[in-house]
Amino acid sequence: MPRPQPEPVQVVKQRRDAALKAMVEGVPYVQWLGISFDRRGDELTAILSYDEKLIGNPLLPAIHGGVTAAFLEVTAIVELGWSMIWDEVEAKKLEPEDLTAGALRLPKTIDFTVDYLRSGLPRDAYARARVNRLGRRYASVHVEAWQDNRSRLFAQATGHFLMPQRDG
């Protein structure tokens, strides 16, 4: 039997980007903080664009510890949501209306522990999360954030999340 033709690259990209956009752009707080996501295949990198309103200590100056925590938490939730829907996106099971703002139920944070390693400098920051366990109800996620050097983390965090109950 002949192998089916692979989908055109634009079609695949468009579908994946629409799914990611639905999780990120519909959330006012994520937009307000200035967080966006870069996608390479299924790998996500969160980007926190520097802005003066993110400063917590104007003398150093340094990014507010709460902003760092929020950035890590957003990264963890989006990565987890992304892992949750990836198979359905690939199987074309999600309709465009499943992906409108607020239609997708995201995981809820149970607890979140942030480890502050050095002060956040007044410039862009990046973060990547790793889902260490994804069960039907609970998930455990680790996140790392850096600025100039990938190997010099300025913060890391671990959180536990309650997964939304989904049909099918």
Partner: peptide, 27 residues
């Protein structure tokens, strides 16, 4: 505030904003 919302379907504020409040208050 509307810009703190984490779940647009319910209007519940994002956990990150709660973290910031806690961090500032502890400091």
């Amino acid at each position: 505030a509307d810009h703190l919302v984490g779940d647009p379907s319910t209007g519940v504020i994002h956990g990150g904003a709660v973290s910031t409040l806690m961090d500032t208050c502890c400091g």
